[in-house]
Design a binder for these strands. Sequence first.
DNA 1: CCAGACGTTGTT
DNA 2: GTCTGG
DNA 3: CCAGACGTTGTT
DNA 4: GTCTGG
Length: 226
Amino acid sequence: MCGRFTLTAAESAVGEHFGIASSFESAPHETAPRYNIAPTQQALAIRANKDGTRTSAGLRWGLIPSWAKDATIGARLINARAETVSEKPSFRTAFKKRRCLIPADGYYEWQRTDDGKQPFRIGMEDWRVFGLAGLWEQWTNADGLTEETFTLITTTTNPLTEPIHDRMPVILTPADYQRWLDPSFDDKNTLQRLLRPYGEAHMQAVAVSTWVNNARHDDERCIQPV
DNA sequence: CCAGACGTTGTT
DNA sequence: GTCTGG
DNA sequence: CCAGACGTTGTT
DNA sequence: GTCTGG
């Protein structure tokens, strides 16, 4: 699965990778380096308009379906399984109409051992930015206040990460971005084929400090190799 | 018809 | 909102 | 994902 | 054990 991730890259590198001008105006609070993005926190999301132009915004991690009576369900819907995402009531509408990319340059998985749990930071071999496949929703509470949330799609693991954990988040290649983001594209089979494990060839996994365990910790010590 | 669920993970 | 179970 | 709470009353 | 919060 994927319950934590990083986005430490410069705002300009993120903009260049996803083809957006700048996040300073649309999401000023998401431009600082993040070493430990946790569920319920805001994170940067990339979406596309019908004309294909891309925008960025800060959304809350943990999808709240539009029909939810209260927001607490969001903390449990932080991941959606690629195998069932197109059918599940909580996700199917967003899968058709509200897909997004979540910029990251690492994600964390905890390996269970006899001694406890060892966190790993996993990403590209040079820690460059990549796009995680996500879905977003808009939810309005009883007071009429609106909130935008997202979930990350997971799939089976790849050979690099198999010893650590049996699931991994879906990482899309830039060639797939446009189709994934296009809100008017809704061919279920085509979309579902994009949700496969990313090739391990240019990835790395590094054991890091348990400092990352606490979601309130958000500094360089989280990515410190051990 | 109405009522109630709607999710993933890991562990057993 | 939409589907399943009763 | 992990950490931390897990309760009610009345009063300030 | 299970739920909520980050």
